[in-house]
């Protein structure tokens, strides 16, 4: 009995540390005021506005390929439409980089590297980092070539973060569908498990094996 408790406990603790909360490994955390968290989380109300702000402030250098948003000079290029007719709205990366090599190379020459595509950046960095970095790039990452475009405009920055979230994550209605699916699946499995167990007791009783 003691052995069972010990081995079960130590195994659960082990997987809790590995898969939920590793309090041995250090992770950087960034602060974000609550009112801006609210804006960045609320994709439904602010993603559209965020997209406009993105087009005004960020699109000169950054693309969001998964939303078919390319850097401004590419967006103005008539070739883009022809290519999109052939490959779909989201161009394959190699096609995009080969055809628009000159536009991307111009950015590379002024910034030292091609500014990254921001399709999945929300999943990589999280809202807190994105918010702080966009507001004051030099403070978060000294020496970065990212210009301080959004400094002093926290609310608009939060709206841009909401837009990036809307691109990276499934839309809210899809998310709630997935939650429902998850709950349904788990409930089905638990009920089936219990039913199998009850059926087993009956079968075993009939066989005189209990």
């Amino acid at each position: 009995m003691i052995k069972t408790v010990f081995f079960t406990g130590i195994t659960l603790a082990f997987f809790y540390i590995l898969w939920f909360n590793n309090f041995f490994a250090h992770r950087e955390r960034y602060e974000m005021p609550a009112q801006y968290v609210k804006i960045a989380e609320d994709v439904k109300s602010y993603a559209k506005e965020g997209k406009q702000l993105f087009e005004q402030n960020c699109q000169a250098c950054h693309s969001v390929r998964y939303d078919a948003v390319y850097i401004s000079s590419v967006q103005a290029n008539p070739k883009l439409k022809t290519l999109q007719e052939k490959y779909g709205k989201v161009l394959p990366r190699d096609v995009y980089e080969a055809v628009f090599y000159e536009d991307l190379n111009a950015l590379k020459e002024s910034f030292g590297k091609v500014p990254p595509d921001l399709s999945t950046i929300y999943l990589v960095k999280g809202k807190e980092y994105l918010f702080n970095f966009t507001l004051e790039p030099q403070k978060v990452l000294p020496g970065t070539s990212m210009p301080a475009v959004m400094t002093g405009r926290p609310e608009e920055t939060a709206k841009i973060v909401a837009y990036l979230k809307s691109v990276a994550e499934p839309p809210p209605e899809e998310k709630s569908k997935r939650v429902l699916m998850g709950v349904g699946t788990i409930a089905y499995l638990v009920v089936m498990g219990v039913l199998i167990w009850l059926w087993r007791s009956r079968v075993l009783k009939r066989m005189g094996l209990h």
Binding site: L189, V190, M192, G193, V194, I196, W197, W199, R200, V203
Partner: peptide, 8 residues
Amino acid sequence: LKEGAYVM
């Protein structure tokens, strides 16, 4: 049946 329930 026993392990079937565990698998669920």
